[in-house]
Amino acid sequence: MSTRLPAVLAAVGFGLAGTAIAQGSTMDEIAKYREMLADGNPAELLELKGESLWKTPRGPKNASLEQCDMGLGPGKLDGAYAQLPRYFADTRKVMDVESRLVHCMVSLQGFQYEDVTRQWFSRPGKESEIEALVTYIGGKSNGMKIDVPARHPEEARMAKVGEYIFYRRSGPQDFSCAICHGQDDKRIRLQDLGNLTTQAGAGMAMSTWPSYRVSQGAVWTMQRRLIDCMRQARWPEPKYLSDSVIALQVYLQKTASGTVMQTPGIKR
C-alpha cells in the first residue's frame, strides 16, 4: 500500500485541480482510490491502537475501560456505537460515543476531564487517544444496523433540538446545515452532498464514521466532523462534547436508523 498511495493521491489531486479531465472521470478516480484502500484503510491501525488503549489498565486508578458501559452494559461493545447517542440513567444525560467514553475515562480510570479531552483530535505529530478509542468502538458495530429510535423522552427532546439546529440559519453567509444537506443529488464544487433529511442520505453519512479523511491524513470522529461543519458555516467554535453536537447526532442517527454500519470509513 505504501508505494501505491502517493501515486493514487497524485492522480486524485490532479483530477480535482485539472481542467482537462471531465468531472465524471474525477469522481471515478476517487471511487477507484476508495476501492483500493477498502482492504487497507489506515484507520485499521488506529482500531488496533484503540483496542490496546481499551484493554490496558491506565490512569490514577490503574483500571482498563473494560467495565465501561456504552449503553448495552459494562464491557458490552458489540453494536453499542450503532445505538448511540442514548440516555444514560447514571448521568441523567443523553450522551454520544465520545461524551460517554470521556465519562468512563474520568470515572473508571480517574483521569482529569481536561487531560483526557485536551487532545480530542489529532494534529500532525500529536496523536489522539480518543480518536483511536472511538475508531475501535465504532468497529465493534461494523455490519450492524444503526438503531436510534429516540423513544426515551430525553432522547426525543434531543432529536427535536437537533432538528431545530439543522434548520437554524445565521452568520454572514445565512448558512444552516439544511442549505447544503437538505436536497437530493446536489454537489458543492465536485463534492457530492448527502440529503441528511432522508434515511438514505443520513444513512450514507452516519454509517461510515469514524472515517479516515484523505485530505486531512487523519481519522475524524463525528464530533470533529460536526464541529468543522460549524466552522464552514462561519460560526464561532462549539465546545467539544457540547449538547448541540450531541443533539445533531441524535437527529441524524434517528433519521439514519436501519442503515448498516460500514466503519471505519474512508473519505475525501
Binding site: 427532546r157 433540538v161 431545530y164 439546529i165 437554524r168 445565521s170 452568520g171 464561532p236 465546545k239 443533539a247
Partner: peptide, 28 residues
C-alpha cells in the same frame, strides 16, 4: 417550548473564549 429550549442549548454550546464579536454571528 422546544424552540426556546433548543435555542438556549444551541447558544450554550459554544466555547466561552469565543470573543463576543464572533458570538454575534449567531444572532438572527
Amino acid at each position: 417550548d422546544i424552540t426556546a429550549q433548543a435555542e438556549q442549548i444551541f447558544r450554550g454550546s459554544f466555547r466561552e473564549d469565543n470573543p463576543s464579536y464572533w458570538m454575534q454571528r449567531l444572532d438572527q
